[in-house]
């Protein structure tokens, strides 16, 4: 009997090591295969110039339009997302009492919103845009991506805001501060969470393709107004890979490298911030 259980233990441990190895392998394989294919093709011209004439037939040029378009959308969505989510988190954690019913329903709803796929956000955003007579544009894409990342912002900041010791809020109240004036304390306390939530949201926003597919469209030029269509990095990868021309496909791999690098940098800086950014935080 004893022997059997030991053998079982050994076997299961082996499987577990195998699982860990698989996870590490998957990460390495995804990142390295993209890099291996894309890095040799990456050139300064590609990240610094717009698509030239006959680009999708193998003409010259780069995908600066996609890089800039992505930054426009992500920048706009992140700012709007922060403006909307910080007050919501504050409302949930300071204005509402602990274990309030509305609070728990709201948190559940944000969880659900977080789970809804971006293609549904895209389809919904698209119908709304048609309703208002809007065409695919920078504005439309930014709004949909904003909606997409609001639940991420709220959930990850709320997770930390919930752990603020009630004594801290009470200390502020007992000095005669109103709830609104207590915001400065809450913000200081969750500053690292705001930073990591921002990085998380940027990562999700920059990688999202299904949401902007309908709503931002695609364009070879850098948009100069909110109503123009704009390219994005993921869609640039996706569309170029569909081309039969090998040269165009090559550019897709190069764009994939750029996208991966951005996401890796975001993920690493997220970790660093988590460790460093807590100067004033009270444990």
């Amino acid at each position: 009997m004893v022997k059997r259980s030991i053998i079982e233990e050994k076997f299961m441990k082996l499987f577990m090591y195998a699982s860990i190895a698989l996870v590490v392998f998957f990460v390495a394989s995804v990142v390295l295969s993209v890099f291996k294919r894309g890095i040799p093709l990456l050139s300064w011209e590609m990240v610094s110039s717009l698509p030239g004439g006959g680009f999708y037939m193998g003409g010259g040029g780069g995908f600066l339009n996609a890089i800039v378009g992505s930054f426009y959308i992500v920048g706009g969505a992140t700012v709007m997302g922060l403006i909307i989510s910080i007050p919501v988190v504050f409302f949930l954690n300071v204005y509402l009492k602990a274990n309030s019913r509305f609070g728990s329903i709201a948190r559940l709803a944000y969880d659900v919103l977080f789970g809804i796929p971006s293609i549904v956000y895209g389809a919904f955003g698209f119908t709304i845009m048609i309703y208002f007579g809007l065409r695919a544009s920078l504005l439309g894409g930014t709004i949909v991506v904003t909606l997409l990342i609001i639940p991420i912002f709220i959930r990850s900041m709320d997770e930390v805001a919930k752990t603020i010791p009630s004594e801290l809020l009470e200390a502020s109240y007992s000095l005669g501060a109103t709830r609104l004036e207590t915001i400065s304390i809450v913000i200081r306390q969750i500053a690292p969470a705001i930073a990591t939530a921002t990085l998380l949201s940027i990562g999700r926003a920059i990688g999202d393709a299904a949401g902007v597919l309908f709503t931002a469209g695609f364009s070879d030029r850098i948009p100069t107004s909110l109503t123009q269509q704009t390219a994005t990095l993921p869609l640039s990868v996706y569309f170029q890979l569909q081309s039969p021309s090998l040269e165009v496909q090559d550019r897709a791999y190069a764009a994939a490298v750029v996208l991966t690098l951005i996401v890796l940098v975001l993920s690493i800086s997220g970790r660093i911030i988590m460790n460093r950014f807590s100067r004033n935080k009270i444990q």
């Binding site: 996870v23 995804v30 295969s33 999202d208 993921p234 890979l241 791999y253 996401v263 993920s267 690493i268």
Partner: peptide
């Protein structure tokens, strides 16, 4: 050691997984 790997896996965009799928 393992958590950063999971972080990266979670953060990679869908389209990159697609590229990986087509490549490998």
């Amino acid at each position: 050691f393992v958590f950063p790997f999971l972080d990266i896996l979670a953060g990679l965009p869908s389209v990159i997984y697609g590229v990986w799928g087509m490549l490998l």
